[in-house]
């Protein structure tokens, strides 16, 4: 059974990719994923802003303890002047260790706060040996004077700048709240993105009613969320000149299949691995193979995109009319 997949110009042995999760910072975990059949791994994101805020916080802690008393040069051992693993060094070391330990491609991921940050960190991870680089891009456009076009241009600028700085493939992971997702994806491909991940799942804040504070708790994605990437992948399949990765909402082999049939080159998952453990990759792949087997197919490529908008007979089903009929169906069933 041939599950080999081309993604970002890389050849993957299977179409499953472990999307960034905190567990991916553990090389042992990555090895278990590889053993279970993962096609590639994406390392957790290096967040420039968080890293610099942490660095500033530690610098402030150091400063509070320096030169304020005749009896002490400072209160912390000079040997530890930081950045205590919060600098990029720790991350770059992870890239190196992951590369050493794995045979499957290792994709680094960064989130930067400035164009220079994107470029600098991109160069660093390339230098460290990453096979590809995922740009974890999102802006919450709180400034309402910014137009959709202006926001979208920022996405394009980041990809263009990084593309100029590195030679490894670059993939943009974008959020769904863009006025014209397809236009943006096409633009990103135009700027040199080798692929696009649909979508970046943001953790919006919640309100703590007791303390009247914002709270932020992570909830793993669930299968109903799969529909949005499925829709856009189905629409974009064969319409854009870059790889398409589906992310969000994958739990079982059926979910994987649906996204592949919609046209995804690869399917990413974190939630299912967090829920079921790294061996779950095995289960997903077995399910995939069983389905292909049952249809006597020996290659995944035969079915990829068969359910895309361009391949189905009634492309309109992916459009608004679909919505009206669904409501009608729902109403009938729940009457």
């Amino acid at each position: 059974m041939n599950l080999a997949t081309s993604y970002l110009g890389l050849t993957l042995r299977t179409p499953l990719v472990a999307s960034p999760s905190p567990l991916n910072a553990d090389v042992g975990h990555l090895r278990r994923l590889e053993d279970a059949g993962i096609g590639a791994v994406v390392l957790p994101s290096l967040f420039q802003e968080q890293l610099e805020a942490e660095r500033d916080r530690l610098a402030a802690i150091h400063a509070q303890a320096a030169d304020n008393n005749p009896e002490a040069r400072g209160y912390l051992a000079d040997a530890g002047l930081g950045p205590y693993g919060v600098g990029p060094e720790g991350y770059l070391d992870l890239v190196r260790r992951a590369k050493d330990a794995l045979d499957v491609p290792v994709i680094a991921s960064i989130n930067a706060a400035s164009v220079s940050g994107w470029v600098d960190y991109a160069a660093m991870v390339e230098e460290a040996g990453a096979d590809a680089l995922e740009l974890n891009i999102y802006y919450v456009p709180v400034d309402i004077t910014q137009s959709g076009a202006q926001i979208e241009q920022r996405y394009l600028d980041v990809v263009a700048a990084v593309r100029r700085a590195v030679s490894i493939p670059v993939v943009a992971k974008i959020p769904s709240f863009l006025s014209s997702v397809g236009h943006v994806v096409a633009g990103l491909a135009e700027e040199g993105a080798a692929g696009v991940v649909l979508f970046n799942r943001l953790i919006e804040p919640d309100i703590d009613l007791l303390r009247l504070k914002l709270s932020r708790e992570l909830e793993l994605s669930s299968p109903p969320e799969l529909r949005l990437p499925l829709l856009w992948i189905a629409i974009l399949y064969r319409q854009v000149r870059c790889s398409l990765a589906a992310s969000t909402g994958v739990d079982n082999a059926e979910d994987v299949l649906k996204l592949l049939l919609a046209g995804a080159d690869v399917v990413m998952t974190t939630a299912s691995i967090l829920r079921h453990g790294p061996d779950h990759v095995h289960t997903l792949l077995d399910g995939l193979r069983a389905w292909l087997d049952s249809r006597r197919l020996d290659s995944l490529d035969r079915v990829r995109g068969v359910m895309s908008r361009s391949r189905i007979k009634e492309p309109g089903a992916y459009e608004r009319a679909n919505y009206i009929s669904l409501i009608q169906t729902y109403s009938r069933e729940h009457r």
């Binding site: 530690l58 802690i61 150091h62 912390l76 051992a77 040997a79 530890g80 930081g82 950045p83 205590y84 693993g85 720790g90």
Partner: peptide, 12 residues
């Protein structure tokens, strides 16, 4: 605490 994290820096 930096006292614990120092070593991560100097001798992981």
């Amino acid at each position: 605490e930096i006292r614990y994290r120092s070593l991560v820096e100097t001798d992981p």
